[in-house]
Design a protein around this nucleic acid. Structure first.
Lengths: 157, 157
DNA sequence: TGGCTATTGCAAATGATTTGCAATTAGTCC
DNA sequence: GGACTAATTGCAAATCATTTGCAATAGCCA
């Protein structure tokens, strides 16, 4: 299943909090990580696309041969570890990433068209209190959840 | 991330409706699919493990060399298409399957320990009406969702 | 029982992701 | 600015889950 980046480009719900590139790189420096060309390029791409992007999509956005695929994979791990991006799993076997706003945990969900792969962000999360209940009932701690919706979008019906 | 089959063996919430092997194979015959050794063996294993099983776990349960990995993959596709099993995605890159009770759609969720990979089934689904709302608001049809919970189980805390 | 076709095993292909390693470079110190 | 050191990169090869081509095999029906 292929899922391309057509998610329409009305900006996502997190746009308003989008940090500038210097702010982002500053965060890198604070953690004594180096500010390299590839990393800046990747952050810039993520900044410009407030939607879940796959590694391959990021790679495609990058000026030809500007950076290796492996480097993107490594960068995403780094950024994820630093809580600068959030990883999403939209059900095909491909990881996608979104830039996180400063301080926010980026928790939200998506509605994905199973035909054209358009992605719509869903801001509300209704599952918080459910988590509590389920955690308590089963004695689990540190509960999180993953929730994504799938369906057929208006244009594909 | 490895996730093994230790989900404790108090049977899952769907045990009571577990169909017998003859009933299952009858369903195959009805759809003019052949009742082969591998398929029977796989169904029997799924019957005995009312928990999400990966292809590899099924393979491991199988008498040595009784059947090829590719055959299990193909069988799971077949059974999924016939709505005899349901595929789950627990967040590591590995598909898992559960036998579906006759007539039931098998919709339920899981609570997965991120340390030991124990899996607990969650029967209730609270997201049904949410689906409606989200579908209506975005003009989507045929909405479904995937929801899984993650946390640290009592024994791993 | 025979024959036709679905199904299997095996090996090779695919696709996403990871990793080893030597070459390169950002950040630091003088 | 130049040297130094550790972090980072590119490249190629390795993994891992899953899929597929193809010839051999085995269900099922007459």
């Amino acid at each position: 299943m292929k899922r391309s980046a057509h998610s329409h480009c009305k900006h996502g719900p997190h746009e308003h909090k989008r940090a500038s590139l210097p702010k982002l790189t500053a965060k890198l420096r604070r953690k004594s990580r180096r500010i390299t060309g590839p990393r800046q390029a990747i952050l810039e791409i993520l900044r410009r696309h407030p939607h879940p992007l796959s590694i391959r999509e990021i790679f495609a956005e990058l000026p030809k041969g500007d950076c290796d695929l492996a480097t993107i994979y490594r960068s995403m791990h780094l950024l994820e570890g630093m809580k600068m991006v959030k990883r999403f799993d939209l059900g095909d076997g491909v990881a996608r990433f979104e830039l996180l706003a400063e301080g926010a945990d980026g928790h939200h969900h998506h509605l994905v068209c199973v035909r054209c792969s358009r992605v719509i962000e869903i801001n509300e999360c209704f599952t918080r209190e459910l988590e509590e209940k389920i955690a308590a009932r089963n004695g689990f701690k540190a509960i999180t959840h993953k929730l994504e919706f799938f369906g057929i979008c208006p244009e594909c019906q």
